[in-house]
Design a binder for these strands. Structure first.
Lengths: 141, 141
DNA sequence: TATTGTTATACTCTATAACTATA
DNA sequence: TATAGTTATAGAGTATAACAATA
């Protein structure tokens, strides 16, 4: 991996830029990024806790507490699963689904704003390059 | 900003990829990302608290506490500035400078690993595009 | 009075270990 | 005994408001 000096820093700057924008957009929906990604993941259907933890890349205790906080707000609901009663299935409430879909669309529409300074054809090239990196489409897809 | 559906998600995946790698590299130096960026910023000389907060993009109380934690470990030192005694100048200790330079070089050398899956010429194009985004070279430069 | 930085307080996120309940 | 999930505990990060010291 040979690259110009300072490129590590440039990558950190890019990540920070994306995340600051993400925080802004999520805040407009009264969500933190973690809460947003949870609701986005649940927006098309229920999931087991273990699967969610893997999808979101977090440990199970962290997920339990994230769910606690957002369940209090009535956006998700835990239900014991029937065949194996150890399993907890998490589903978004109707309001949770509505918010999840809204924030997902908003992120999709407005997060690319971070690239405004690039010419349209450069934005397109950038999108193609990033999409070619494996395992990049993580949480909500 | 017109882009293919799901591109917002792709950008979030890219940011997450970069940050996971950053966390790994920092951890090998026994630092969190925030601590690392502080030491990297101080690696070439002292700074005032207010300037540091602006450079790192955090509020002053957050910086005070970050400094508290890393000062305990003997990596930075606070000194009252003379002309205006309200001002606190923060400087890295010799060990802090050593660690700051080491982690900076390591990040620069190894963070670009996240692009290994791209062909070398695509990595080069990617680097050029990212470097063209304004305000991207933030904290430690 | 305005400014620099700190303290106080609270919340979110995360990690590890110990625990409960099912299987 | 193994697994799914939770609770307990701790630490890092961040935000806001109130405060101290200095200008």
């Amino acid at each position: 991996m040979t690259s110009q000096p300072g490129f590590g820093d440039t990558l950190l700057g890019l990540a920070a830029l994306i995340q600051r924008r993400h925080i802004q957009i999520c805040a407009e929906h009264d969500l933190t990024p973690a809460q947003s990604q949870l609701l986005c993941t649940l927006r098309e259907g229920p999931r087991r806790m273990a699967d969610l933890a893997a999808i979101l890349g977090m440990a199970k205790p962290a997920l339990s507490q994230l769910v606690d906080r957002i369940e209090t707000r009535g956006l998700v609901r835990r239900t014991a699963s029937e065949p194996d009663r150890r399993v907890v299935t998490l589903e978004a409430t109707p309001e949770g689904i509505k918010i999840g879909r809204a924030v997902y669309e908003d992120v999709d529409a407005r997060l690319p704003d971070v690239l405004v300074a690039l010419a349209p054809e450069d934005q397109q090239r950038f999108a193609e390059l990033v999409s070619a990196i494996p395992h990049i489409r993580c949480p909500s897809t």
